[in-house]
Amino acid sequence: MVDSKHKWKAWLFLSPSLVLLAVFTVWPIINTMIMAFSEGYSQMYALAGKSFQFGLGNFEFVAQYPKFIQYLKTTVLLCVLTVPISTILALLIAVALNSIKPLRKVLQTIYFLPYVTNSIAIGLVFSAMFNVIGNVSATNAQIESYGIINNILMAITGDKWINWINAGSPYWANITVMVIYIVWNALPFKILILLGGLQSVNKQYYDAAKVDGTSKARVLMRITVPLLSPMITYVVITGFMGGFKEYSSIVGIFGADMGPTGNPDAMNTIVGYVYDSLAANQEGLASAAALILFAIILAVTLINLQISKRNTHY
C-alpha cells in the first residue's frame, strides 16, 4: 500500500535531477560517440545544414597529427615522473608522520594546504619563483633578477643558474618545473589517504617485528607497504587518472599558450588538444581525442589493477 503511493512521489522528486542528468551526463556520452565518428564534424557547419560522413577519419587524423603525438609524449612523461615521485614521497611522509606524536596534527594540516589552493593562482606563484627577469639570451644575457629558485641554486652551486620557463628555455627544464609543481600539488591527497590507511593497520604486526628485532627498512618494505597496498593502488590509479588529464597546472605556470614565450604548445597535453580543438569549432576531432584519452586511462587503470591483484594483500 505504502509503496504504490510512493511511486509517483519518487519520480516527482527525481524528475529535475533526471532531466539534468539526461541532458548533461547521458546525452554527452552518446553525442560524443556520434561526433567522434562523423568525419570532420563541426557544430557550426552542422547547424548550417551540412552533413558529415560516418567513419574513422577523426581518429586517423588525430593519431597521425604530429602535434598530438608530441602532446601525448609530454602527458605520458609527466605521468611517469610525477606519479612514482609523489607516491613514494607521500608514503615516506605518511610513515614518518604516523610514528611521531608531538607536532603531528600541525604538520598534517600544513601538508594538506596545497590541496585547498587554486591551481592557476598558485601556478602564478611558482611561475614567479622560477621566472628570470631580464634578457636571458645565451649570447648576451643581462639579468635583473634570477628568481628565487635560481638564487637558491646559485647559493648551493656557486654560480649555476637555469633558464626554467623563459624564452628559449629547454624542454627538460620546463618538464622539471611542471614535475615540481604537480608533485607539490598531488602530495596532500596521497598523504591523507596513506595516513588514513596506516592508522587502521593492526599494531600486532609491528609488535611481532619488534620482538624479532627486524630492521626499520625491512619493516617498511615487508609489513607497511604490503598492508598499505590497497591504498597505494588507489593513489597510484587516481594519480594516473589525474596525470593523463593534466592541463590547468600547466596553464598556471605557462599561461594559456601552454609553453614559454616564443615556443607555444611546448608543454601542451592531450586535454589541451581537446580544448584547443573545441575552441576552434572542431568538435569531431575534440571528441575523437577525448575518446582516445578515455581508452588510455581505461587501459592504464586495468593494467594497474592487474599488477596490484598480484601484489595486494587485503
Binding site: 581537446v274 575534440a286 584519452l293
Partner: peptide, 8 residues
C-alpha cells in the same frame, strides 16, 4: 573523464 562531457 570529465573532458568527454565538456565537449558535448
Amino acid at each position: 573523464p570529465g573532458e568527454l562531457f565538456t565537449i558535448s
